[in-house]
Design a protein around this nucleic acid. Structure first.
Lengths: 154, 154
DNA sequence: ACGTAAACATAGCCAAGGCTACATTTATCA
DNA sequence: TGATAAATGTAGCCTTGGCTATGTTTACGT
């Protein structure tokens, strides 16, 4: 059974594309998982900035359900990635890139919730599950969601 | 603006349920994220056991796109959690609990992909996105998916 | 049957994202 | 204005899930 094993090991056979599809999928999921935290922070900071006029690290921490040192550490990551800025003992602000990301994330979040609700998921469950699922929806999938909702609205 | 700040900080106001909803949602998402890895491993090991008759750690590693030390370390976690067993230089086996989890996870995965496809997401994107999204779908949401698909089938 | 390659295991490193405990700065109000 | 509370920041620890490098065992082919 050497041949079958070889195929199983590489995930490839002659008539398959060069992508080891399963490993590739898991890899994509891992990447999305790592981006999820950044996305959540950016969206929340943007929300706070518009609704309260400022984003304090303790507010962020409380909303996310983590301690403030954890929030600060994560915000440091945002700064490192050029998404946010802050000076000691002052609030947090988003860069242009951060603001754009926030808008993208919020739009995706809304679309995800809308879709779930359209499918028949109750609102609370839709909000809760969307929080996790949204980070994994590709552009292709989001476009399909939008198309589906548009069709439904007729 | 003390009152508004107090509300923002706790996420609570008088007419709201005791649950700090946003923090709660993020907390749930964090829990799901941590379960995701275990679920992926268990499902894959079950697949290998049925399709190949055995589950080798190198196969698992290759399919998941990680190195084998990483796979071994994760499998150690499965063992710790009572989902799998293995002896040095022998394959990996699932406990009854592990097998049950695998079945649950596989069913959920199929349902997720089916739903995405029914919505109009192309197969490749559905497979890729489902890999991440499936871990965040609650029972409520899955039931709604099933109901939607049943209705569509008419 | 035995030597070598492949599979498996172990050790030790790293970054991320949690936490607690402690220090510092700001802000409030008596 | 000055004491105290609240907000912010820092230090240091833990676990998880990656990795590389380096041993061991098993298994295969001659």
């Amino acid at each position: 059974m050497t041949r079958e094993i070889a195929e199983a090991e590489t995930g490839l056979s002659d008539d398959m594309p060069a992508e080891p599809t399963q490993a590739h999928r898991f890899g994509q999921a891992r990447i999305a998982r790592s981006a999820a935290l950044v996305e959540d922070y950016v969206e929340l900071i943007d929300d706070l900035l518009t609704s309260q006029g400022e984003a304090r690290s303790t507010d962020v921490a409380k909303r996310l359900g983590v301690t403030h040192p954890t929030a600060i550490k994560s915000i440091a990551r945002l700064k490192r990635e050029g998404l946010a800025t802050s000076k000691p003992y002052r609030g947090i602000f988003l860069t242009e890139a951060g603001h754009e990301l926030a808008n993208k994330v919020r739009a995706r979040h809304r679309l995800m919730v809308e879709l779930l609700v359209a499918i028949g998921v109750p609102m609370d469950a839709a909000e809760e599950d969307a929080e996790g699922m949204e980070h994994y929806a590709s552009e292709t999938t989001l476009a399909a969601f939008a198309a589906f909702l548009a069709k439904q609205a007729l």
